[in-house]
């Protein structure tokens, strides 16, 4: 067995799963608060676009990362207003936002960069020199990437925030039983807003990864990753560590698919893995995966 191939496989798996993980954890925050977020796809796309735009104009990739987070939060805020304030159908809102993001990024891609396929090349983030971890062959590329390190921190921090802090408790309570939370003085709308906007920030950061990884924006570059993140969130049973694990698994499948490309193996069947896994998990064949009780249900405060 050639170790270099194994290390290359692992490195590729990690890199593929970064945007999945950020979006899936974002989705977890949103849905734990009771708001279904199918807009992850559009948030990734808008995040990537604002990242490229900001980096292009300032020349500073860090500004680009901030812009991606801002773009993600802005996109998510549309979803929050429509589904929390207007109490509208959350799934349709998400789908409409995805359509809007697709159209808007293409529109501005053509206006700003004069191309219907891709932007100009942008500067990437600098690589960090991390002691010890940076000395491992091949894998050093993982530990030198600021966004990958940030993702690792985010995974554990999210798990902590969701289950060990009072904000996490409030968020889960408005997702499980908003009436009870309301009667205890929790502002249901405000906490749900926080969950959705947080999902926008995280998925927006995922968009920054896509843009930085490719050093440009290409049309439709989220290419279904938001939906895979949704799948990972479910397979991970609405918790950050689980979602990250599912993302690594999906990343491994995709990495395998890439290794097999060019050989006469029908890669479509490997492509199906995340989706089939989700259907199987939802049907309860591998442990039950139960969404938060009030997931997708707008909260109607009792009127006097």
């Amino acid at each position: 067995m050639d170790w270099m191939i194994v290390l290359a496989f692992i490195s590729q798996m990690v890199r593929i799963s970064v945007p999945y993980t950020l979006a899936a954890i974002g989705g977890t925050f949103s849905e734990r608060g009771g708001v279904v977020n199918i807009a992850l796809e559009g948030i990734l796309l808008n995040g990537a676009f604002t990242c490229v735009l900001a980096t292009h104009y300032t020349g500073n990739p860090w500004v680009g990362v901030l812009a991606a987070v801002a773009g993600g939060v802005a996109t998510a805020s549309v979803h929050a207003v429509v589904s929390i304030t207007f109490k509208a159908e959350q799934i349709v809102s998400g789908l409409a936002i995805n359509l809007l993001a697709m159209g808007a990024t293409r529109f501005f891609l053509r206006i700003i960069f004069g191309s219907s396929s891709n932007s100009e090349r942008i500067a990437g983030l600098p690589e960090w020199d991390v002691p010890v971890l940076g000395d491992i062959p091949v894998l050093s590329t993982i530990f030198s990437s600021p966004l990958i390190l940030a993702t690792i921190v985010i995974i554990f921090a999210s798990q902590f925030v969701l289950f060990k802090t009072s904000f996490g408790l409030r968020l889960r309570s408005v997702g499980e039983h908003p009436e009870a939370a309301d009667s205890l003085g929790v502002n249901v709308s405000r906490v749900r807003y926080a969950g959705v906007l947080l999902s926008g920030a995280l998925a927006g950061l995922g968009g920054a990864w896509l843009a930085m990884d490719q050093h440009s924006f290409t049309d439709g570059m989220s290419s279904g990753r938001g939906y895979i993140a949704l799948a990972a969130m479910i397979v991970g049973k609405w918790n950050p560590l689980g979602a990250a694990g599912a993302c690594l698994m999906f990343g491994a499948a995709e990495s395998l698919q890439m290794q097999l490309q060019g050989q006469d193996v029908p890669t479509q069947f490997i492509q199906m893995i995340p989706y089939v896994a989700t259907v199987v998990v939802l049907a309860g064949f591998i442990g039950r995966s139960i969404p938060p009780a009030a997931d997708g249900v707008p909260y109607e405060k009792e009127r006097q």
Partner: peptide, 16 residues
């Protein structure tokens, strides 16, 4: 792509 934007807005306004 302007029409995709129009379509997206139609949907959002209808549901809201």
């Amino acid at each position: 792509e302007l029409v995709e934007i129009l379509q997206g807005i139609v949907i959002l306004v209808v549901i809201a």
